[in-house]
């Protein structure tokens, strides 16, 4: 693993009303690392994702993506800078087909304009063909290419989660954020998902930060962890060390 730092966050804070949802949050993630963010319900994990992707503006702190400060940018620009995400409660383009869900995320990378599309010029067909190929390859990674033409909302739950990851990858990010990717999956599906995440890391040289409650998944694939509790970092470091930390055990078992 290289030592290039993809994400570096320093003393990030935000509060809602009186509630300090996240305070003084720090993290640094290396290239090709799979990093876990865990913590009890309401600890502020999703809020961290929302801060990283520009949904919320932090009250303090800085977010460096490959050395560049992205605080203050909106969601669209942050995605263009290279952060893509999935959502805890799945957000697909539900009336569109599976492949169109992925193709629309490729928009930035294929250049033809609206008029060329309307007039069906050669450029349109060339780009569409390449987009179909790339989208199809992504679907293959998640073994849902046979469902390419199904409307997204008709997919079974586990496959919807996979499609969301495929869509995020289609924007060709530097950093991929997964919010509880295994939620609602059975043991087999989770196992399969773990393999897929490893495959994504290796095939795409991807750096991944994931939120997860499933400890088997966390132990299985995360190299390092950060534990959040009441918006504060309780512990961080190598997965095994962190999970054996007394404070962490206390927070999880509630004494």
């Amino acid at each position: 693993m290289s030592n290039e730092i993809v994400l570096n966050v320093n003393s990030l804070s935000i509060s809602f009303g009186g509630l300090k949802a996240v305070s003084d949050f720090n993290i640094d993630i290396k290239k090709k690392e799979i990093y876990g963010l865990i913590g009890p319900n309401g600890a502020g994990k999703t809020t961290v994702f929302n801060l990283l992707t520009g949904v919320y503006k932090p009250e303090a702190g800085e977010i460096l993506l490959c050395g560049e400060n992205i605080v203050g940018l909106d969601c669209v620009s942050i995605n263009k800078k290279g952060i893509a995400r999935t959502f805890q409660n799945i957000r697909l383009f539900s009336n569109m087909s599976v492949i169109d869900n992925v193709k629309v995320a490729l928009n930035e990378h294929y250049k033809y304009n609206t008029l060329q599309g309307i007039l069906r010029l050669r450029k349109y067909f060339e780009c569409e063909k390449k987009m179909d190929e790339e989208a199809n390859n992504l679907l293959k990674v998640f073994s849902i290419d046979d469902l390419a033409n199904v409307t997204a909302t008709n997919l079974p739950y586990g496959k919807q989660r996979k499609l969301e990851i495929a869509r995020a990858l289609a924007t060709r990010p530097k950093l991929l954020l997964l919010d509880e990717p295994a939620a609602g999956m059975n043991e087999n599906e989770t196992k399969e998902l773990m393999e897929t995440i490893l495959k994504v890391r290796d095939e795409f040289d991807m750096t991944i930060l994931l939120i997860e409650h499933d400890m088997k998944l966390v132990k299985g694939i995360c190299e390092r962890l950060t534990v959040l509790n009441f918006g504060k970092v309780l512990s961080s470091g190598n997965t095994n060390d962190v999970l054996n930390d007394k404070e962490v055990i206390k927070a999880y078992l509630g004494d």
């Binding site: 669209v76 263009k80 957000r91 539900s94 009336n95 193709k103 629309v104 930035e108």
Partner: peptide, 18 residues
Amino acid sequence: RAIMALRDNRIAGESIGL
């Protein structure tokens, strides 16, 4: 596709750079 994606889910649309 972008227009329809933003109709179906604006937040997800923004998250993929639309």
